[in-house]
Computed example of a mutant assay.
Amino acid sequence: MGYLLWIFGFMGSHRFYYGRQITGVIWFFTLGLFFIGWIIDLLLIPGMSRSADSRFKSGPVDYDLAWILLTFLGWAGVHRMYMGKWITGVIYLCTGGLFLLGVLWDYLTLNEQLSDVNRGY
């Protein structure tokens, strides 16, 4: 999954996926540190994956699918609808992911949101 998100890594999606919010924000605003850090990350993904596996637990709402939906359709709120958050999903759909600021917020918090949703099951 990390390699798939790395394709859009210049937006930091793979860094957010692995729970590295600070560097994810830096990648988001600098296009992966002007694409240089993005290329270096290709070598760092295995270590980031091992670290994230120990922190985040799976459940009925799949992390990988939610991250794919956020990365490719975040502006439309499809990831929020998938998690059962229909109202905010429709709001995202009508506002372009709250003008992409909501998408950035979800990049920052999606792992925690998924943990909370999966705990409820």
Rank of each mutant, 00 (worst) to 15 (best):
G89S: 04
I91V: 14
L98R: 07
K57Y: 07
L4D: 05
M48S: 02
L70G: 10
L65P: 00
M48Q: 03
G59N: 05
I36T: 11
L43N: 03
L42Q: 01
G32D: 00
E112I: 08
G89E: 01
C94S: 10
G32I: 04
Q113Y: 09
F35G: 02
R55L: 15
G74H: 02
R20D: 15
G24W: 08
L4M: 11
W75V: 15
W6C: 07
L33A: 10
L108Y: 07
L42I: 00
W27R: 08
T95I: 11
I40K: 01
I40Y: 07
G19H: 02
G102H: 05
L65E: 13
R55V: 11
G32Y: 00
L98I: 15
I22P: 00
V61T: 14
A52N: 03
L110W: 04
F72P: 06
G24F: 10
F29T: 08
R20Q: 13
Y107I: 04
T30A: 07
C94G: 12
S58H: 14
F8T: 07
N111G: 03
T71R: 05
P46V: 00
Y92V: 00
L100M: 12
F99Y: 09
G96L: 14
R55W: 02
I22T: 14
T88K: 12
T30H: 04
T95V: 11
A66Q: 02
L110M: 15
I87H: 03
T71H: 06
L108K: 06
I87R: 11
D106N: 12
I39W: 00
I68R: 07
N111T: 05
F16M: 09
N118T: 09
G96Q: 11
L33Q: 01
A52G: 04
P60R: 12
L101V: 15
M81W: 09
G12L: 06
Y121T: 12
D106S: 13
I87M: 08
A66P: 01
E112Y: 08
W38N: 09
L93G: 09
L114S: 08
G97F: 10
K57L: 14
G2Y: 01
W105C: 12
R80A: 13
G19I: 00
F28N: 03
L31C: 13
G24V: 10
L4K: 13
P60N: 12
F28E: 03
L5D: 03
G74K: 05
L33F: 07
L93Q: 04
